[in-house]
Design a protein around this nucleic acid. Structure first.
Lengths: 224, 224
DNA sequence: TTCAAAATTTAGATTAGTCTAAAATATTTT
DNA sequence: AAAATATTTTAGACTAATCTAAATTTTGAA
């Protein structure tokens, strides 16, 4: 039997939990991501286990099977390619595309996604800087670090965000810290872990710990 | 409460039945279009009537309300715009786009369709020559006739098809009778109502009644 | 105009996905 | 290690959308 949209959404949630800390994904964690009750999650885990998309041990959490992993990767590919389409071709802002891509990722069709990928010029990253797996499910890795982990004196370019919420993204727009923006870290304040940075266009900004922990920076090869 | 995808599909079916012959749409006719049982249709008609999208009289069939008409028109607009996207931008053939557009038409989102329309250059017609209603729900009409109804000696251009099945569309591809192709009607054979035509590139074809009844032609203004 | 055939609706079930409340299991604290 | 707390599962119920079979209503032909 076919995989439903609800099942796809659970797979993606499990994948995202597995990404950080590759322990089994626990019921409550999945319920939190899916914004639903633990009981509903348990029901769904049984269905996914029946379909061999996860291995499920009562009270112990779940792991993706190879097939489950393949499907979630494909789903993330579809999601991120549609996000690129929405921003690059239709002119949506990076804080507007998530809900639409959430629907578009479930569209099923022969060769649709590969044609879309091609039409978009085979982008490596989505509008939030997240990598897009290729048709074989392989990822491009990139050397990036959270701004919060850098040493003063380092310079880099904004390459991604960890928080995808519209409020964070809009705040970054206001600060001029969109993808590709240059920043150099001037100073860290131990008191509240805020940081002072200089932007590419010469402005100085103070960023809270919350911001610096959600902003990925790729270090510039210091010209030496 | 929101309109579901299933409800949208029924609305579209009712709209299509209402188009030809503006009598109420009957249960069996809807069941035929939806490829489902009459009992399922009756259930759904009650739901649609509850939501004031149709007026329903038991055993008498249904009519769209103003709201139902507005929603079906918007749905057809979405379907046809996505078909243009799939052919013009992703390079699908006109016989491949229906099922994908059937899914894409249900995507809900702020301003998505108007942005898509704009991106596509506000097309007036879809890849099968069907008109695309504008954002206000208004249609562009076009003077076209079925090839079967023309008089010998007339000349025109292929502007649309009534049968959207892949087999018919692929047959037209083979014959070179795609949208924009020139044809002049040479002769009608009373025996089986087939016709002989000359194409723009000088070939002569004999077309069955089935073909000529499914092919729309716009007459050329005879240069006189 | 009656009655058989056709069309439609109702009745009763099923499935996927969800819920709340209660029960079971696991973890943490003392 | 027992008790308290947290987590997870089960039980039972609900909705939307579908089905088949039976009942009802309409149609149209003799």
């Amino acid at each position: 039997m076919p995989i439903t949209q609800a099942e796809e959404n659970y797979l993606k949630a499990i994948f995202k939990i597995a990404e950080k800390g590759d322990k089994p994904a626990l019921t409550n964690a999945i319920a939190a991501v899916m914004q639903t009750s633990a009981a509903s999650v348990t029901d769904m885990l049984k269905r996914l286990a029946d379909k061999q998309l996860i291995t499920y041990e009562k009270y112990r959490g779940v792991l993706l099977t190879e097939e489950g992993h393949r499907l979630s990767t494909a789903l993330i590919r579809r999601h991120r390619l549609w996000e690129v389409f929405l921003t690059e071709k239709l002119g949506f802002a990076w804080d507007e595309v998530h809900d639409l891509a959430e629907q578009l990722e479930h569209i099923q069709g022969n060769g649709l996604i590969d044609r879309l990928d091609n039409f978009l010029g085979n982008p490596g990253f989505d509008p939030h800087g997240d990598p897009i797996p290729n048709a074989e499910g392989h990822w491009t890795y990139r050397n990036q670090s959270l701004l919060a982990t850098l040493q003063p004196g380092t310079q880099g370019v904004v390459t991604g965000v960890d928080d995808h919420s519209p409020t964070f993204l809009q705040y970054l727009d206001q600060l001029g810290l969109t993808l590709g923006a240059q920043v150099s870290l001037l100073e860290q304040f131990p008191y509240d872990h805020s940081v002072r940075v200089r932007t590419g266009d010469g402005r100085e900004l103070v960023l809270s710990e919350k911001v610096s922990k959600n902003l990925y920076i790729k270090l510039l090869e210091s010209g030496n």
